[in-house]
Design a protein around this nucleic acid. Structure first.
Lengths: 157, 157
DNA sequence: GTTGAAAAGTGCTGCGA
DNA sequence: TCGCAGCACTTTTCAAC
């Protein structure tokens, strides 16, 4: 039986488990259990429930892009020729590996992307060759991040 | 002895290990070893090396914000009164939990933030009370994401 | 829903090549 | 530097509360 709650209300225990694991997914269940004063089995049951409900998407190893030569983070405001070209543009942008986020949005831009590149040469190549080649894109505005001052997940508490 | 390579060149094996774990940090080392046709110990040695080099930042449990009632993702272009107020503004914005990313950037805006809220009421509260209370912020422009079409990490290959 | 312990699987370490 | 094998630890399961 599939659960359909799109908005399941987490209790205190669920929230605390998530809060701990969101910042460090490799903490053992037994240690979490000790902190929250429940048994390891309970942590397991709760995690399984939240996985089934789709609350937990998975886990990521977080790397430092700069250490492996990816120095530039940029945001791209994208203007489409027509709004109807959205789905098509998404499909084409999925093939551009440097695009790590893409949003359909309100306001000035039709779409909004986050891209990560090695250097300015790489960025120019992505903008001029890959992005501009996408059909339906009229023009873009680039915002280059000089420093990422905050980078975290939402706080549940 | 601390290593100081800010730009260590990963070999093929390192790259493949990271590529696998970036999408699912809970895959066992032994399974990765099988895929890449090396021993489990080798994976371990490589991971340890990359951790020491600071390439690996840690691991995160990824949750689906919408499933727990956080429905709105918005981007905020921030205009500062003076550029010199940057450090101060960062410190104040760190206290606003809904801000999950903050960049110091080129272009139209002085700073650029990503925020996640429960609903429009929550968003308005954050914008009007929390953000506007930050000293040095002149005004902001809000871009609301209606749909996140792409969300992934950088591809190493 | 929670517990505690047993079974299965994984991570870690040291020795050898 | 890499691979193999043994030990320690974690995850998972399950009967009982």
């Amino acid at each position: 039986m599939e659960k359909r709650n799109d908005n399941y209300e987490l209790d205190n225990l669920d929230t605390q488990i998530l809060s701990i694991l969101m910042n460090n997914a490799s903490i053992p269940y037994t240690e979490i259990a000790k902190k929250l004063i429940v048994s390891g089995g309970t942590i397991h049951v709760r995690m399984k429930k939240m996985e089934e409900l789709g609350i937990i998407r998975g886990s990521h190893l977080i790397i430092n892009p700069q250490k492996i030569g990816f120095d530039i983070t940029a945001f791209l405001g994208i203007y489409l020729e027509k709004g109807s070209q959205y789905n098509n543009a998404v499909e084409q942008l999925k093939r551009v590996k440097e695009v790590v986020e893409l949003h359909y949005c309100t306001g000035t831009y039709s779409m909004f992307a986050k891209i990560i590149c090695r250097d300015t040469t790489h960025l120019r190549k992505v903008l001029n060759e890959d992005i501009q080649a996408v059909k339906g894109i009229q023009r873009t505005e680039t915002i280059i991040s000089l420093e990422e001052s905050i980078k975290r997940q939402i706080s549940l508490t």
